[in-house]
Simulated assay, not measured.
Amino acid sequence: MRGAQELAAFLDELDGVPVVVKPLDSGGSDGVVMVAGPQDVPAVWRLVEGSGRTVVLAEEYLDGPEVSVEAFSHDGVHTVVALTDKVLGTGFVEVGHAVPADLPEPVRRQVSELTTALLDAVGLVEGPSHTEIKLTGRGPRVVESHNRVGGDFIPDLVRLVHGVDLLRLAVGVPLGLMAWRPEPRQAEGGAAVRFLLAEPGTVTEVTVPEALDPAVSLTLTAKPGTEVPPLRWSDDRVCGHVIATGDTAADAAARCVEAVSRIRVGTMP
């Protein structure tokens, strides 16, 4: 899209379906905005121009929960290693993940087949990939895909649950330092991550309980004086995160939520 008129015309073409606008030159949900209707077009395009951009990508908004597919390709053969559940905050910013995704087997199969078909279509031959998919009422739909590992500590969750180190494989297999067996790795337990969030402002105090669940690992980056920006993209998550393991992904996610609820990051506007 190269202007407000093009954006309005695309919105009209979709006949009432919202549109998602995103930059062509960024990531981490930076600058991703939903246009609910024609009334939003002028304000959204002012945001685009305010960011110094003149061209953006516009897509049909896809309803439903989001998952990602962590895969590894070798000699053109794609292996789905893990499926990841996502928790979205404001502005489509991801604030949590859990492995393995809690999906019925038919949906897991649909998601996996859609991903491998996409990787075939784009010609990926070697290395990791991270594909984000929405589970819409019309079935799974691709949001975006990348020829890299996922961010937000997803490789750590995959390693904890499936025993596959995607980062090491990404370097070791192409160099002939590691072997790759293209076969599914069954999940053993579950793992999850949640980011610590706080109200925008200057951090005045950080309170951490004396003891956390032994299955929870805390990384705390906020301290008095840290500036917490509004949550607009991934780099605005400046307070830290927790990673937990459990018998299931739901168990691990619950431990994350419980730990986060006991950690206070106080701010002053």
Rank of each mutant, 00 (worst) to 15 (best):
D40T: 05
G225M: 10
T115V: 13
E105A: 15
V164Q: 12
A244Q: 00
K86P: 06
V149R: 07
E258G: 11
L196G: 01
L7Y: 11
A187H: 04
A179G: 15
V203N: 07
E126N: 06
T79A: 04
L57Y: 14
I243P: 00
V55P: 00
V77R: 15
A4F: 03
K223L: 06
T245Y: 00
T79D: 05
E49S: 12
F195A: 02
G189L: 07
K134G: 03
P140L: 11
D236V: 05
A36H: 13
P23H: 06
V77C: 01
T204V: 15
V206T: 06
K22T: 06
R159S: 05
D165Q: 11
L218V: 08
L57G: 12
V99I: 10
A170M: 14
T136Q: 08
M268I: 01
G16Q: 07
L118Y: 15
G123F: 02
H130F: 05
P65W: 12
H146R: 11
A4H: 06
D165C: 09
A4P: 14
D156K: 12
G27M: 09
E144Y: 11
V173W: 10
E6H: 07
A244L: 02
R264S: 09
E258D: 15
A58G: 14
W233R: 14
I154K: 02
D236F: 08
G52I: 12
F92W: 11
V164D: 08
K86R: 10
D213L: 07
G225S: 06
C239E: 01
C239P: 01
R262I: 06
E49P: 00
A187N: 05
P106L: 13
A4L: 05
R148G: 12
R181D: 13
E126R: 10
V67W: 14
I263V: 14
V41K: 02
D251T: 05
M34N: 00
E144I: 12
E105R: 14
L197E: 13
L169R: 09
D40P: 01
G201R: 03
R194W: 00
E13S: 12
G96Q: 04
A187F: 04
E205C: 09
A43E: 10
P100F: 08
T219E: 07
T90D: 14
S73G: 06
S261A: 15
Q186G: 11
V33L: 11
P174W: 14
A252I: 04
T84C: 11
R148Y: 04
V87L: 14
L24S: 03
G16P: 03
I243Y: 00
G76S: 07
P224H: 06
V17C: 10
G91M: 05
L7K: 09
G266H: 10
V19N: 03
G76F: 01
V95L: 09
R264D: 08
N147D: 07
A36K: 10
Q39F: 00
I133A: 09
W45L: 03
L57C: 15
E144D: 12
A191G: 04
L103K: 08
G172A: 15
P182G: 09
G89R: 04
D25Y: 07
L119C: 06
G151V: 05
S261E: 13
F72N: 12
G137R: 13
E60G: 13
E144K: 09
A249I: 00
L218Q: 03
E66W: 12
V99K: 01
E6V: 08
V99R: 02
P224Y: 08
